[in-house]
Design a protein around this nucleic acid. Structure first.
Lengths: 334, 334
DNA sequence: GCCCCGTCCTACAACGATGTAGCGTTGCCG
DNA sequence: CGGCAACGCTACATCGTTGTAGGACGGGGC
């Protein structure tokens, strides 16, 4: 900046003012400075600016791991949303390990970022108190509700209810649930199962326990296993609601194996709208949880906390809009 | 740091010295300072340190997008390797758009990182010159060779040759190639196809053009399409070498459809060893390109450039070790 | 007894930017 | 024509660290 100032024949501060779009600068001066910048190929030192301003323009995004497609796609969306807001994202991986999830909240890198987007997987409702850190924090996901932080979540219950109602409206009555975690209340599994139950009961039917298939890990293989168990048990099934897309794809695979026509004999609905749902055969009907909206909202909330201070105003809870994306695996309109 | 110094009754610089493990400090002084740090909950300001030291401890990782599993898993490995080296990773997405790949090389964020790991997808051999930027840079992937930068790549040709030889050794003679990009010389497709051809010819056979199936995008669906075309053409096939796992999984799907036994009638080998290869049915034999080694090597190379200066020494090219991971889709040992 | 060296610590300047205060100039208004 | 506000620019201090130079002290060698 010294050099630029010297070349342009102005003070350092004037160069700074030009760079920051300060209003009261004579056009001729501005041009001289800009010419000097071009001539010298000057680029501003962001570290110095950050030190002086007390902000870094960076936000943390703490996730379990990128190998899980949902999180990879979420990271994609968050980076994009942050870019638009002029922020840089620093991804931190927790491996869904409790210790590392705790560390990420207060660790050294918090001093390098203006705030944190945090998607825990190991922490649960009982850990809500640890979210009371001193810096801007926005929580993502379904592990902790009503904690001391802003929270962006998907409409798990509503969306699952809507998916189930959609199948009911098409005349399906033997709707299997794939991926249950018995006993779970909060968490994606518990919430989505609740939506399923609400829809069934609202239709005046009863939930048949034989139709509820458990799956601990939500992988393609566990979805396939659950589907096999359902079919082998002899239970009548005319639709499957899998709690995520990976399991739905596994289920599709098994149905195909067994020469069961999809959607004619069994309709299949997933949850997440991962990229692959567009490419499977048949293509997969699924719940789109509004990933981009979640990302954008989370970034916005975090940014407002950064500007206004971490403690300003009450904690906000935002539920993203979802939609049902109809593809071949159901084939009938909403 | 002021406050800590005051509480401990020492100078600021002594606090700094304690934090940096300076040798000549009396144990009692060290303890007093550490006690003061604990008492005040002091954490060092990394921005100020970065400014003073002229380093940020951050490296950039420029990728097309995280939605592509290979890149998501690569990012995972890079972040882990960087963590071990005490570095923080800043992911930048290019969307495989030429303009953004160029921008990432010189953009504003380069002033915030000590170096860049760059995996281009839009730039090609003819762009090698633009890699001559002034800062530490390590190139990843198969788009540009012998450019003005260190380069970490997988052994595409060797690995593809080994995969093909493995199938030949098991007695297969009609080995189809799925995913060719006709005319491509460098790039993953061209290199892997070259390995395939070398193995076939080294065995004294001729490459039958009818066995080489093209696929532009390397998706599950395009792999399935290619497999269908092969089968429909009536060409005899007793093995498939797909140039990535996604296509191999698509091919498996079609073979299963057609009631063709894998591996008895047709053996299938993929490339990449993505997570899903472990979970398909049958599980997929594939080339593991040493992703972790690539990540670790790339981080090491970049770190040495950061320490020694971008221009120090000749450009290094490292080829990662690969291995054949045998699973059910071939079922016979190496 | 002197000097030198190793130990332990400190003062000061610097990294490269920006906020604050203030100074000169100009033009307008009364 | 004097006063005041708007404009255009500058000097200086400051953000929180760390590198450099050097001071004070004690012990060992000559």
């Amino acid at each position: 900046m010294q050099d630029v100032a010297a070349v342009a024949g102005v003070s350092i501060k004037t160069v700074s003012n030009v760079l920051n779009g300060y209003q009261y600068i004579r056009p001729t001066t501005r041009q001289r400075v800009e010419a000097a910048i071009d001539q010298l190929g000057y680029q501003i030192n962001l570290t110095a600016r950050n030190l002086r301003q007390g902000r870094t323009g960076m936000i943390g995004l703490a996730l379990p791991e990128l190998s899980l497609p949902y999180f990879a796609e979420l990271a994609d969306s968050v980076i994009e949303a942050a870019d638009e807001a002029g922020l840089t994202v620093l991804i931190e991986l927790t491996g869904a390990v409790r210790e590392r999830e705790l560390e990420v909240l207060t660790g050294e890198r918090r001093r390098l970022t203006d705030g944190l987007l945090f998607s825990p997987l190991a922490l649960g409702q009982e850990d809500a108190a640890v979210l009371d850190v001193g810096h801007p924090l926005v929580l993502l996901g379904e592990r902790i509700f009503d904690g001391p932080a802003d929270h962006v979540t998907m409409a798990n219950v509503d969306a699952a209810r809507a998916a189930t109602q959609y199948l009911l409206a098409a005349g399906r009555r033997r709707i299997a649930l794939v991926g249950a975690h018995p006993g779970e209340q909060v968490g994606s599994a518990g919430l989505r199962e609740a939506g399923y139950r609400q829809a069934i009961e609202a239709a005046g039917l009863r939930v048949d326990p034989a139709l509820v298939a458990e799956a601990g890990l939500w992988h393609r293989s566990t979805g396939a296993d659950a589907m096999r168990r359902l079919l082998d048990s002899g239970t009548e099934v005319d639709a499957v609601f899998a709690l995520n897309d990976a399991m739905a794809l596994g289920a599709l695979h098994v149905l195909h194996d067994r020469r069961i026509a999809v959607p004619e004999q069994v309709a299949v609905v997933g949850f997440d709208d991962i990229d692959e749902a567009k490419y499977s055969s048949p293509t997969l009907t699924t719940i789109s949880p509004g990933r981009e909206q979640i990302a954008r909202t989370a970034v916005d909330l975090l940014r407002s906390r950064i500007v206004d201070g971490a403690g300003a105003g009450p904690f906000r809870q935002v539920v993203a809009d979802f939609s049902i994306v109809v593809r071949e695996s159901t084939g009938f309109p909403v």
